[in-house]
């Protein structure tokens, strides 16, 4: 063998190896998930309404339902799912290093996060916002009455920054009292350690419901920040991005179209509504672009239910719900004055 041909063959082998490596790296998230046989969905440490452990060790909550919906869309079963509970310090790293396939947790969609952390937010599944709670007998009826007040707040969160902004803009001179642990914060508030408590409104509702005398406290009407919460995926895989995004839209769309867990079989068999037929895979080929099976949306609704059902169960008045009223809030359907809106299924 002449030296040149030897070098050429080495180069060829090397090129093939690298090509192989690139192919392996370029494998889409959907392929990886299907090959593995389950979806790795990241949530946070337990937080009422969004993700919780029950006494049997099972996960439940509205964000857990989003994970289940994506698993159902891919595999036809919500059980093919591994919930990863990750603390907020390492949530984005765990997505970036491939440990998790998607993030379904209370991460606020901000420009900075969307552009600089290597992740893409899909579609908003809950609109939250920061508010205040005060004891009823304090006579305070508006957040603007909180002049010079002490306010209990969790440290190291955007909640703390929002409070500072709000205080500065309105010249209220609010004195924050910071805590690491939400339970300690609540106890301090209950024992009169501060005049008001600030948190996301969903959090306030669940905090209040846990007090010995919930009726002695009231949530002030002002919302001082925007906290759109959306599932997020790694940047650079638009098929995967579409799957997660359209799973959320399928949940909302199903509610718009009146399809729910109970009637989905009937709807698939008998509905004459073209939108319903397209969504449930009776007509058309909407599934092809997503790379999923024809009945992906049917599986979502059959296994998990529509957006309204999820909301009622975990955010609303259900047995495991934290009791936040939906009507009149941003989380109502657009037809009822809210912001929940699904692009058309066609």
């Amino acid at each position: 063998m002449k030296p040149t041909s030897f070098i050429t063959s080495v180069a060829a082998i090397a090129a093939m190896t690298f090509a192989g490596a690139t192919v392996a790296l370029a494998k889409s998230t959907l392929e990886i998930v299907k090959e593995r046989g389950n979806l790795r969905c990241q949530v946070g440490t337990p937080s009422p309404g969004f993700y919780n452990l029950d006494a049997k060790g099972e996960w439940y909550g509205s964000d857990v339902s989003i994970c289940q919906a994506v698993a159902a869309a891919i595999f036809g079963s919500k059980k093919k799912l591994e919930i990863q509970s990750v603390s907020s310090q390492v949530r984005f790293t765990a997505l970036a290093n491939g440990e998790s396939d998607m993030l379904s947790r209370t991460a606020t969609w901000t420009l900075l996060r969307d552009t600089q952390l290597g992740l893409d937010f899909t579609a908003v599944n809950f609109y939250d916002g920061q508010g205040f709670m005060v004891p009823k007998d304090s006579g305070i009826t508006s957040a603007l009455d909180l002049k010079g007040a002490t306010v209990c707040v969790l440290t190291g969160t955007t909640t703390e920054l929002n409070l500072a902004d709000f205080s500065r803009v309105n010249k209220l001179n609010i004195k924050p009292v910071t805590f690491e642990d939400s339970n300690v914060r609540n106890d301090t508030y209950l024992n009169g350690g501060c005049d008001a408590l600030t948190n996301d409104k969903s959090g306030l509702a669940s905090n209040k419901a846990a007090f010995p005398n919930p009726d002695d406290h009231t949530v002030l009407p002002e919302t001082i920040s925007k906290e759109p919460l959306a599932p997020a995926v790694r940047q650079g895989d638009s098929q995967w991005f579409d799957i997660v995004k359209w799973t959320v839209y399928a949940l909302v769309g199903a509610e718009e179209l009146g399809v729910n867990k109970g009637n989905v079989d009937d709807m698939r068999a008998n509905s004459t509504n073209a939108s319903v037929r397209r969504m449930l895979g009776v007509e058309g080929n909407l599934h092809e672009g997503l790379g999923l099976s024809k009945d992906w949306a049917y599986n979502i609704i059959k296994e998990v239910g529509n957006y309204g059902e999820i909301y009622e169960a975990y955010m609303g008045g259900g047995k495991l719900g934290i009791g936040i009223a939906r009507s009149g809030s941003a989380n109502a359907l657009w037809t009822k004055g809210g912001l929940m809106y699904s692009p058309p299924f066609r």
């Binding site: 452990l53 339970n183 007090f211």
Partner: peptide, 10 residues
């Protein structure tokens, strides 16, 4: 986690 489970909140 017990304090976050909805039936046992707090």
């Amino acid at each position: 986690s017990i304090s976050q489970d909805v039936p046992w909140r707090g």
